[in-house]
């Protein structure tokens, strides 16, 4: 170990390794920036559907900050910042970043808010939520996915996210009520216990569609009197009538 040439070689390798990592991180950051620019452009056309001029600046900042490449399988890392859904195994996908951005925006989260996610998947959505709210709870029913997501979240520095393996149908009773709920694991219906665990004034978002293809988003709202309503939101600016009729 004391030999100077040997030391030089080892130092060189270590330096090379760290510089490679730094270059890769820089590259990912650049790609993330490009992705966010694309999302901003694309959501500009959807303002009529989202009832806002543009995405919340805090959502954009979260998109710029959360390292999506830490939440995809190694084989998919080169595509981590493509604006497309990716397979994560077990028949599940990580949603298209655009859809994640719109869903997160629709929740209208406060920093002190309490948010529940049903269907952790890779943990990316939970990380996005953690950038916007202090109390994030996430449940995943597929055990290997839950473990992987938990490790992803820790590695990316989201230690405060509460993770659990289990059935999300009954929500997270001990932590309820929630200001916001995201149900990414599609069920045949919206579980009544989740509606119960939504605070008056709270918002719940559910993507509807097949794998790799979100058709529309359902925004469930509970008003101050506990009355439930939904909004069916198309994630793109498309009107089915030409207006010529």
């Amino acid at each position: 170990m004391k030999h100077p040439i040997f030391r030089l070689v080892v130092s060189g390798i270590v330096l090379l390794f760290f510089s490679a990592c730094a270059i890769a991180e820089n590259d990912f950051a650049r790609q993330r920036h490009a992705l966010v620019t694309a999302i901003k452009t694309e959501t500009a056309g959807t303002r009529g559907y989202l009832d806002s001029e543009s995405l919340d600046q805090r959502v954009i900042e979260a998109l710029l900050k959360v390292p999506r490449h830490e939440f995809v399988p190694d084989a998919e890392r080169p595509f981590a910042y493509a604006n497309r859904p990716l397979p994560i195994g077990y028949g599940q996908t990580i949603s298209q970043p655009l859809i994640v951005a719109i869903m997160t925006d629709l929740l209208k989260l406060n920093k002190s808010g309490r948010v529940l996610e049903v269907g952790t998947g890779s943990g990316y959505q939970a990380a996005m939520l953690a950038e916007l709210a202090d109390n994030v709870y996430t449940i995943e029913i597929i055990e290997p996915l839950a473990k992987w997501a938990s490790a992803n979240l820790k590695r990316a520095g989201y230690d405060t996210v509460h993770t659990r393996t289990g059935d999300g149908y009954y929500g997270w009773e001990e932590a309820a009520p929630f200001d916001a709920i995201v149900v990414t694991a599609v069920a045949s219906h919206i579980p009544p216990p989740l509606i119960k665990q939504l605070k008056p004034g709270g918002r719940m978002v559910i993507p509807v569609g097949a794998p790799f293809m979100t058709q529309y988003l359902v925004l469930v709202t509970k008003d101050a009197d506990g009355k439930i309503g939904t909004r069916q939101i198309l994630p793109v600016n498309f009107v089915p009538l030409t207006g010529r009729h």
Binding site: A38, E42, T43, G45, T46, N83, Q96, L98, I99, I102, G209, M213, T214, Q215, P235, V236, N237, F238
Partner: peptide, 9 residues
């Protein structure tokens, strides 16, 4: 609209 989430159309 393909890139903006319109592929399902």
């Amino acid at each position: 609209l393909m890139a903006s989430g319109g592929s399902f159309l």
